[in-house]
């Protein structure tokens, strides 16, 4: 999902840019046209705020940090799930209107705001971190950097749910009852690969969490604003752990002889 680059050389120059912003709620809606005056350095969220301030004070939009860290301003910009605060206007084609619409994988509340509470319900059901007995009497453990390095990548997640939005299993097939989505596969990987964790989530991954629905399109990886290698580093290694446990007769046989 590449972007077109049209660098603005003069930071003080202003140019009008046409926007098509989706207005509506769960019952339906339509795109409405607005014009924003864009200067160098502006991001899409700046334009939405400008439209809100000058043309449509009732335009609903969720935002918070404006720094790409809170994950609130997720939307679809020119069809690409993106953070509005991290999408610079000079990366979008200047000669066509910019389309901004809410995430499609979640129910609409109003305008650009969607109800993402399904994600919080999913998270509650994942078996939580269960550390082994402490290494020392003072209740502490020794953990080496090489052991947690892999997990640290997953901890960068800001829960913007762009990966959930672009995943076709949720977006196109509406498998919300059978599939937890890339965000929570990353979350499970962070727990499952943690060197101190003793809980087993592999059976859940196979059945309840529906990891097999992922067909490795890597769209989640492409839209992640934190550049987490979701598919290669989290989902596929988890799929392989499921294979170890349920589909590989050799590893199943070896487990019988492995010392407990």
């Amino acid at each position: 999902m590449s972007s077109h680059s049209h660098p603005v050389t003069d930071a003080t120059a202003t140019r009008p840019v046409e926007f098509k912003i989706w207005r509506g709620d769960a019952k339906g809606g339509a795109f409405e046209q607005y014009t924003a005056q864009v200067t160098g350095g502006m991001v899409v969220l700046d334009c939405i705020h400008q439209v809100q301030a000058e043309q449509a004070p009732d335009l609903a939009c969720r935002w918070n940090c404006k720094a790409g860290k809170c994950g609130s301003c997720s939307a679809e910009i020119n069809g690409k799930p993106s953070l509005m605060c991290m999408t610079r206007m000079d990366t979008l084609p200047a000669d066509q209107p910019v389309t901004v619409e809410p995430l499609r994988a979640f129910p609409s509340i109003r305008d650009l705001v969607t109800d993402v509470s399904w994600n919080y319900e999913v998270k509650k059901k994942i078996v939580p971190f269960k550390p082994r007995e402490p290494d020392r009497p003072d209740g502490t453990w020794t953990v080496f950097q090489e052991d947690v390095e892999r997990v640290q990548e997953f901890r960068k997640c800001i829960e913007c749910f762009l990966c959930q939005d672009v995943c076709h299993v949720l977006r196109d097939h509406h498998k919300h009852d059978e599939f937890i989505g890339p965000r929570f596969l990353v979350y499970t990987a962070a727990l499952e690969m943690h060197p101190l964790d003793t809980a087993d989530r592999i059976a859940d991954l196979k059945e309840r969490d529906g990891i097999g629905y992922c067909n490795i399109g890597k769209c989640c990886t492409k839209v992640c604003p934190e550049s987490i290698t979701i598919t290669d580093n989290a989902i596929i290694p988890l799929k392989e752990r499921v294979v170890d446990e349920f589909y590989d007769p050799i590893t199943r046989l070896l487990r019988i002889f492995r010392p407990k």
Partner: peptide, 26 residues
């Protein structure tokens, strides 16, 4: 399945999508 990220799929699959969760792609 899908043709590319954020691009719609053929309608016949819909919620009947099986992915690699079930036969044959399991």
């Amino acid at each position: 399945d899908p043709s590319n990220c954020g691009v719609g799929e053929p309608g016949f699959r819909g919620t009947k999508y099986r992915g690699e969760q079930k036969l044959p792609l399991i």
